[in-house]
């Protein structure tokens, strides 16, 4: 059982994520229309289009850190809103953690998710329970770490991380938003699933679908 993750798998991961975003664009937008400003689906789709084009252009890239850094800059300059910088810093920080080379260990991948989450929280100042993307990512990061330390395979570890992200996403329905545009509604934000947590869940679900072996 190998627990390594390759650059090629990472490329598949983010192409898969771009497909997921495009498939679910209308749902993301409708979730955002309910409690935000109805732009999350459109903006993420724009980022997904640019990301796919960039990945297809990057044929001579051999290092995971260069690849993830390029993804980060592409997302920062194409998504806009809060999601652009937040997904951008996630990949920027993850790229530094990954370092050069075309393969990393599962342990390193778990660490990348951890520091990526931390950078999102540093920039966005959101905590668990604020009804944001953190509510999907934080449980996933924790589950990934526990499964990795327990010696599970990449496939198994990412599967539990994806389940944790999904549960975290669904838990945002009952939360009152404390950050982002939904927070302007105060208690009226309760009863709606957070669009940022939803796109963050898709990121983890795509990882589970592509990075295993």
């Amino acid at each position: 059982m190998t627990r390594d993750v390759t650059l090629e798998q990472m490329q598949h991961w983010l192409l898969h994520y771009a497909d997921q975003i495009e498939q679910e664009q209308a749902t993301l937008t409708r979730l955002d229309a309910a409690i935000g400003d109805a732009d999350h689906g459109v903006n993420m789709q724009h980022g997904a289009e640019k990301m796919r084009a960039k990945i297809n252009d990057l044929t001579d890239c051999h290092d995971i850190d260069v690849f993830l850094r390029t993804i980060a800059m592409t997302l920062i300059s194409s998504i806009g809103g809060a999601a652009g910088p937040l997904y951008g810093v996630f990949f920027l920080r993850a790229s530094k953690e990954a370092g050069p080379g075309d393969v990393i260990s599962l342990d390193r991948l778990a660490q990348m998710f951890q520091v990526g989450l931390e950078s999102i929280q540093q920039r966005g100042h959101a905590r668990l329970g604020d009804k944001t993307m953190v509510d999907a990512l934080a449980p996933a990061v924790e589950a990934l770490r526990l499964a990795t330390d327990a010696g599970q395979s990449t496939t198994e570890a990412l599967a539990v991380a994806s389940e944790a992200a999904e549960a975290g996403m669904l838990a945002t329905i009952d939360m009152e938003a404390k950050k982002g545009r939904a927070s302007y509604l105060g208690p009226r934000s309760i009863g709606h699933q957070d669009p940022g947590a939803t796109s963050a869940y898709l990121l983890v679900a795509s990882a589970a679908a592509t990075l295993g072996n």
């Binding site: 400003d37 109805a38 732009d39 459109v42 903006n43 724009h46 920062i76 300059s77 194409s78 998504i79 806009g80 809103g81 809060a82 652009g84 910088p85």
Partner: peptide, 11 residues
């Protein structure tokens, strides 16, 4: 000018 209701990007 950003996208519709979307803040502009750093570049």
């Amino acid at each position: 000018p950003g996208g519709l209701f979307t803040s502009p990007t750093p570049d």
